[in-house]
Amino acid sequence: MSVFHGQADLGGTGNGPPVSRQEFDELFEAVRTWGRWAPADRGAWNRVTPDHVRRATARVRSGTVVPLALPWNTRSGPDNRKPALHHMTDLGDVEAPEPSTHKDFIAADYHGKGITHLDALCHVAYRGQLYDDRTASEVVDAAGARFGAVSALGPLVTTGVLLDLPTVLGIGWLEPGQAVHAKDIIAAEKALDVTIGEGDAVLLRSGHVRRRRELGAWDPDTASAGFHVDAVPLLAERGIALLGGDGDSDVRPSPVDGVHSPVHALAMTAMGVPLLDNLDLEALSAATAEAGRYEFLLVVAPLNIPGGTGSPVNPVAVL
């Protein structure tokens, strides 16, 4: 079902076409999966069965392991307004008994642009509702979430698919504000000889990390490459279990009137698909290009935080 009237070319720099709130709401209804699974707060992760895991592990050939997380970011900047904390609590200066120890403390307000993290289903509500028609105000309070928490997800082991758009286009990166559409996904699948399947994790490389390293930081809340909402019906049709990227999956500025993170709302709130934000996909881009294949085993193990809205993570791809 399409509710859109046109598409911009990926070769351009636009975040359009613009989408009205009515069109967005129609799309939300078209892709939602409320009532489909039990337990509901695992959402689309219910698609990943033991058979999916076995098929994913069978993709390992070289045994090359690629970590996908950014370094723990303690420096303030335009893309890290709430820096993570890291300080030493023990410098090994106790005289006795042996051995001496060294200890440290870490903390992070990780829902932002500076920390690689997983968004759980309780993280995003639309019109006051979480996934599976749960009223946010009734299940989330100061103690945490009683539905859709990251502790309900547990580890995910599945097939990962890298949509490496800069490699497809022969460029260093997509410019901030550049939208990726459904037709671009299909073109990338053909160019990379890969097909997104049920239960897969889809990772979008826009080249965000490379651009930042070469040109410096900017405010990705204002402008970042990512999916246009017209790409979501295709991802829903393929039955994905997880969506992530080197941004936060949304193109910014948002093309949807009055909705600042429309892909977040469609993926998590409508479809029950958790998100991976702020990945470093540069090493994976190089490894997949060298291997000549863009499918791999993906392992995501969030911290077991009862009531948590997500977790810092260091996902691992194994080729």
Rank of each mutant, 00 (worst) to 15 (best):
M1L: 07
Q7V: 15
L10Q: 03
T13E: 12
T13L: 12
G14L: 12
P17Q: 05
P17F: 06
P18L: 12
P18F: 11
P18N: 06
S20N: 09
S20T: 10
Q22C: 04
E26W: 13
V31N: 09
A38M: 10
A40W: 00
G43S: 09
V48A: 02
P50K: 06
V53E: 14
T57F: 02
A58Y: 10
R59K: 15
V60Q: 14
S62L: 11
N73Q: 03
T74Q: 06
T74F: 09
R75Y: 01
D79P: 05
N80F: 00
N80D: 03
R81T: 04
A84D: 02
L85W: 11
H86C: 12
D90K: 14
D90A: 14
D90V: 09
G92F: 11
A96I: 02
P97C: 15
E98F: 10
P99K: 08
S100K: 15
H102A: 14
F105I: 06
G114F: 00
I115D: 15
T116L: 03
T116F: 01
H117Y: 06
A120G: 05
A125Q: 13
R127A: 10
G128V: 12
Q129I: 01
Y131P: 11
D132R: 14
D132Y: 09
T135V: 01
V139Y: 09
D141M: 02
A142C: 05
R146E: 10
V150W: 13
S151F: 08
A152T: 15
L153H: 15
G154R: 07
G160W: 00
T167H: 14
G170K: 08
L174F: 02
E175I: 12
P176A: 12
G177W: 09
G177Q: 11
V180N: 04
H181I: 08
K183T: 14
A191G: 08
V194Q: 01
T195V: 13
D200P: 04
L203Y: 00
R210S: 09
R212Q: 13
R213I: 05
G216F: 05
D221F: 04
A223V: 13
A225F: 00
F227M: 03
H228M: 06
A231R: 03
P233Q: 06
L234D: 13
R238I: 02
L242Q: 04
R252N: 13
S254E: 10
S254M: 07
P255F: 11
H260F: 13
H260D: 02
V263E: 02
H264Q: 02
A267R: 03
A270L: 11
G272Q: 03
D277K: 04
D280Y: 04
L281H: 09
L281D: 02
A283L: 12
S285I: 05
A287V: 14
A289H: 07
Y294L: 05
F296T: 10
V299A: 14
V300R: 07
N304Q: 15
I305K: 14
I305Y: 15
P306R: 05
G308Q: 04
T309Y: 12
P312W: 13
V313W: 01
N314G: 15
N314W: 09
P315R: 06
V316N: 10
